[in-house]
Write a protein that binds this DNA or RNA. Structure first.
Length: 427
RNA sequence: GUGGCUGUAGCUCAAUAGGCAGAGCACCGCACUGUGGAUGCGGCUGUUGAGGGUUCAAGUCCCUUCAGCCACCCCA
């Protein structure tokens, strides 16, 4: 093993893995487009201040890839896309037509310890609706997430999008007499409930967070109240819209969902596998102050992000990732018989390509057996043979590698016959 | 950043109590000089992740380091 190792927390995408990533990208793009969203992208590099504004310089330095360029500026490999989006919107705020419907898929970097479902370099789908401020707009984003899950073959019994509302939680905490500065700690408390034993959780609530006994009891009641959403007009309208959008069965109210991010102001949601085996598949919510935070005038938005790793783990668990062969139908292989006929082979390959048939030409003279073996190795459905006999008669032999049959046909008929042998293109 | 487990051939893994590094698969060749996945025969493959130490002798024991996995932390 003398090869230079790959950078910690990065992944190589050999064609076998690249097919899966491309398939996810195509599906994300198709769903985004179905809802009228346009693709965009931001730079991979941003000034550190863009993120520091939100979460503090120390946090960014610890959890992102940060370096100084030759001019001494602190540059960050983007750890998320939303700040770039907010910056792009703020920069052209008066030139854009609202509401914006934008989506993107690209790499992000976070300097963290790699583990299951989390690496230092990953790919993330971001989709946002900006310039609309209604529960119905929130519902559209939740619906997009649900339609994606349905598109990749996941059932409502396997994955669910859990929805809550920060304003509803806030109102409840207000009623319990929990002051504003204490609420972030309470949100963390709520977030941790299923990670701790009930005793440890209670101790954490009373001692670390500093809740009164009655306040703690009130929080617990809130988390048990599956009907609490009925007290939130926003959530009532949201769920009604989700029914109308046809994704009601993928979504449910979950009082324990609060999301970690501070910039969410209203609806928050995340998708989880039903068994709770994995981290959140996607997460998002409404943010009303983000554009203003990067220098624009206030503009409300709602969106979510989905990383490529957890969704892939979930899809693997449920066996929903199409096989490598389905995702990458191999081209037809044209064999090369000998030095004389190889130009005939090239001409045939050129004709096939002109007819739009992906065609691989064997790159040198070799035994037929070796070439046919190679053809079946790469998953080609058919091989074309042009030996001296075929060349003399102006015909070609086509071998169906799946059914192990062959026939000799004219060159004009070859494209049409090959098309009948090619496997169906999957999505 | 903290802790645990694991690193042996291209891949999956063996190797009694420290005692000559092995098997299956894969690959290459031949049987089969115009026909692939089967079968048979033959063949190739290693700084045992890296560095140091103990020992007559280290894949094995000790130290250091790197990577992967897992949990914690965090989660944009």
């Amino acid at each position: 093993m003398k090869t230079i190792p790959s950078v910690k927390g990065t992944r190589d995408f050999y064609p076998e893995q690249m097919r899966v990533r491309s398939w996810l990208y195509r599906t994300m793009g198709r769903v985004s487009t179905l809802f009228g969203y346009e693709e965009y992208d931001g730079p991979f590099l941003e000034y550190m201040q863009l993120y520091a504004a939100k979460s503090g310089e120390e946090l960014v330095k610890e959890q992102a890839f940060v370096f100084q360029d030759r001019g001494g500026e602190w540059i960050t490999l983007r750890p998320e896309l939303t700040p770039s989006l907010a910056r792009m919107v703020a920069q052209k705020q008066r030139q854009l037509t609202y509401p914006l419907r934008w989506w993107s898929f690209g790499p992000m970097w976070r300097y963290e310890r790699p583990q299951k479902g989390r690496s230092r370099e990953f790919f993330q789908w971001n989709i946002d609706l900006i310039g609309a401020n209604s529960p119905e707009a929130d519902a559209e984003l939740v619906a997009i997430g649900a339609v994606f899950l349905r598109e990749v073959g996941l059932e409502p019994s396997e994955v669910q999008i859990l929805v809550n509302n920060r304003r509803l939680v806030d109102a409840q905490l207000e009623m319990l007499g929990i002051p504003g500065e204490q609420r972030p700690a309470v949100l963390r408390l709520i977030d941790r409930r299923d990670k701790m034993s009930p005793q440890a959780w209670e101790a954490y609530a009373l001692e670390t967070v500093g809740l009164e006994q009655t306040q703690f009891a009130g929080v617990r009641v809130m988390l048990e109240n599956a009907a609490l959403w009925e007290q939130s007009e926003e959530l009532v309208r949201l769920f009604k819209a989700l029914e109308a959008l046809g994704v009601g069965e993928y979504v449910r109210y979950a009082p324990e969902i609060v999301r970690g991010l501070d910039y969410y102001t209203g609806t928050v949601f995340e998708a989880r596998d039903a068994d709770g085996e994995f981290r959140a598949i996607l997460g998002g919510g409404r943010y009303d102050n983000l554009v203003a935070a990067v220098g624009g005038t206030p503009l409300a938005g709602v969106g979510f992000a989905m990383g490529d790793m957890v969704i892939t783990l979930v899809l693997q668990k449920f066996g929903r990732i199409p096989s490598a062969e389905e995702l990458a139908p191999a081209p037809v292989l044209v064999t090369v018989f000998d030095a004389e006929t190889q130009y005939e082979s090239m001409a045939v390959a050129t004709e096939l390509r002109a007819a739009g048939i992906p065609t691989a030409l064997y790159p040198e003279v070799a035994k037929l057996g070796k070439q046919l073996k190679h053809a079946s190795r790469i998953g080609a459905p058919a091989a074309v043979i042009i030996g001296p006999d075929e060349a003399a008669a102006g015909v070609v032999t086509i071998k169906d590698l799946v059914h192990r049959t062959q026939q000799t046909v004219s060159r004009q008929d070859l494209p049409a016959i090959l098309r009948t042998l090619r496997p169906e293109n999957p999505a």
